[in-house]
Amino acid sequence: MSTLSKRWQEYKSSPKYFDSKSRLQNGAKNSVLSLFRFILIVGISYVILAPVIGIVSNSFFSRQDSINPMVFTIPINPTLERYTMAIKHLNYLPVLGNTLLYVIGVTLIQLLVCSMVGYGFARYKFPGKGLLFGCVVVMIVVPLQSIRFPLYMAFRYFDPLGLVTLFTGAPTSELMSSPGPTVIMSALGCGLRSGLYIYIFNQFFRGLPKEIEEAALVDGAGTYYTYARIMMPNATPAVITVAVFSLVWQYNDSFFSATFNIPDSILITRKLDGLVAVIANAEKIMTLREQQLYFDAGVVLVLVPVVIIYLILQRSFIEGVERSGIVG
């Protein structure tokens, strides 16, 4: 007995004991922590996914399911009728084609212009650079929503520097109800969140080594050739980051579409706004509950393309964010 307690005392004072104790403690701590993390992640994921799951499941509800209080999330008599109707009244594929054309076009313009401006700020010294970059920050801080009415006026009576009046005698309003304003503003670096994109590109180009351009210069590449063929391929992470942001935000945007009244034959999100009214009128569906089901199907149809874009680009997007020096 005494020997046993003696040995126990020895063991207790030896480093071995401490090791095993701390290992045990660590093991317990780690498993509690990872359990805590797991619960937290599941909870937050639920908050994010719950409305999506709700919308998707609702869009398969038949009439009986929608009035049956026993049915929750999983429909008993699933139907595709919501989708056929929504596709018909959204004029889905043609309008979606137009939308993608518009969104991808604007994104390409944004990529070109914002990368150019970011590159100019990152690599060249010129008088007034600090002040001008301050203007980029102003663009980030003052959102387009603040100048919505003046922007509307600028395109309602489109007359930059009096040029239109000079040639035709009066300001034109032909750009309203067309994608024109979006394209013009994006091409002049003032599109949707252009300030942010310029900032991202600027941070990225500043992080690239200067030796690349020096080598290009020695090898006889011109300024624009260096930018287009040497710097841009190196900027893939920043390009992907900006491309994803621009595609997704432009697709979901309602600022440009509502301010400049872009027609719903070009933008599927505007078509979605009117979907409930159209279906209610054309199909004589008067209960709000059922109208909502059609709307849910429409939302799913509108969301599918962005989710696909996102899932395709998601991995390289997150890697791009990590490597793009977005935060400099």
């Binding site: 590159y119 100019g120 060249y124």
Partner: peptide
């Protein structure tokens, strides 16, 4: 070099003056 720099930021500069400054 300064001229090259201006040439890169020119489109944005026009847009900023026209839309942002003008609208503000």
């Amino acid at each position: 070099n300064a001229l090259r720099g201006y040439s890169f930021i020119l489109p944005w500069l026009i847009g900023f003056l026209l839309f942002y400054v003008g609208c503000l």
